[in-house]
Computed example of a mutant assay.
Amino acid sequence: MAIITLMVRRNPNLMKKTKKKQKYSNISVIEMTKSCFETALLKKPSPKNLTLEDDNGGGTNSSSWVKSILLGRGAYGSVYLGRSKTRQTGERAIKTAELSHASSLMDEGRILIPLQSPFIVRCYGEEIAREERNSMQYNLILEYCSGKTIADLIEDNHGELLESEAKVFARDVLSGLTYIHDRNIVHCDIKPDNLLLSPTDVRFRFTGYLTTIGDFGLAMEKGSLEYGDGYGHKRGTTRYMAPKLIGDGFVDFGADVWAFGCTVLEMLSGKTVWGEYGDLGFDDWVNLIGHSDRMPHVSAWLSEDALDFLSRCLERGIDKRWSSHSLKNHPFVLL
């Protein structure tokens, strides 16, 4: 899958060599107390207020949504900006695929629909509808995050973000990770392109944005039949894959923590993780990340807290790598 402003990554990078990192605002104002901030976040609308069946109740006639702007295309479908034909719901992102090719998108919907966190992209439901040329389409109705992505923010800033900003974004992502990990879900593709930004009042976030985790197209549920014993799943964007994931195909929560560490490193440095190696073929990525003792380059000029935080995320030993819960208590991200 691929992502744009909402749920599609810009490139279908699964098990392919990653294209060069697209260059990815400095905003500063005031901090607010944690209690006020959390109260504001919880005002997000709940998906239970929306049903997606057509007027006949079957969900297989014309779509309940009008699609307008194409936001992006991925390996398993496309994303459009959309509005409800019958309800005043505001803009949504409609992730869509032909029904005969929608199994991956359906799996994403199955994982996303029950999730309700301000730090996870909201899924409002699904529908099967007959659309143009009489084709049957599966539509996943998603929150539209109009603030682009962390990757875009880095590009717009022409390099690294302020450490004070990176801390806020990192804290948001950790909140999302702990939420899904508590529900036995491994995202499997954390990276700047999949961290979506929603503009918010600077009274609540001095950065002006709330960060949500998007694109669950590769996510897995531990304990499921598909997950099995966790082995045999080399999935994700190669550059961000953890050593044991890319080397042995082992999926666990630590894979998300490693990818998150790579993402924070990019926010702080403004440089693509492993960028000094250029664009490699998949086997070369396996050898570099999975079977060597090399580590992503971390600049020594970062603060002591930042350096220690990154070392806890980017630990090759899976048993030594900190969990998302432990990282939330690290001085780097504490208010």
Rank of each mutant, 00 (worst) to 15 (best):
K320E: 08
K85V: 12
M295I: 00
Y76G: 14
S100H: 11
K85I: 13
G275D: 12
L302Q: 05
N184R: 13
T200N: 13
K44P: 12
S25W: 09
Y209T: 01
C145F: 00
H187P: 09
F332M: 00
E108D: 10
L302M: 09
N13L: 15
T237F: 11
G254Y: 06
K44W: 07
G57E: 03
T200I: 14
K16W: 10
K191P: 03
E108C: 08
Q116H: 02
M106R: 15
S135W: 01
D55C: 13
G74F: 05
R92I: 06
R183Y: 05
D256T: 01
G90Q: 03
K95N: 14
H158K: 06
V66W: 09
P192D: 04
W274V: 03
L161W: 02
N194R: 06
V257Q: 01
L174R: 02
M241V: 03
D308T: 00
Y138I: 11
N61V: 14
V333H: 01
L142Q: 09
T5A: 15
G90V: 02
N26W: 09
I4R: 14
H233P: 11
K244V: 00
E160T: 05
G74L: 03
K328P: 05
C36P: 04
H291K: 08
S324I: 03
L327Y: 00
K191V: 04
N184V: 06
F253P: 02
D215K: 00
I190C: 00
Q116C: 05
V273Q: 09
E163H: 12
L115K: 07
A219K: 03
L177Q: 02
A102E: 12
S103D: 11
A255D: 09
A93L: 01
D229P: 00
G125T: 06
K95I: 00
L105E: 14
R83V: 09
G147P: 04
M241A: 07
S198A: 09
L265M: 07
A242W: 11
K16I: 06
G208I: 14
L142A: 02
N61I: 12
I69T: 14
W274M: 04
L335P: 05
S323R: 01
R133N: 08
S104Q: 15
M32Y: 08
I120C: 01
P296A: 11
N184D: 05
M15F: 14
A102Q: 10
L288T: 06
P45V: 00
G59W: 05
E98C: 03
T178F: 08
D256L: 10
T89W: 07
S299E: 07
R92W: 00
P47N: 13
K16M: 13
G317A: 07
G74H: 10
L307T: 04
R87F: 12
Y209D: 08
L6G: 15
I180A: 03
G261K: 12
L14M: 12
R10E: 10
I30C: 12
T149I: 01
I154K: 07
R203Q: 06
R10W: 10
A219W: 01
A170G: 04
G223V: 02
R239P: 12
T237R: 15
T200G: 04
T178I: 00
K48R: 11
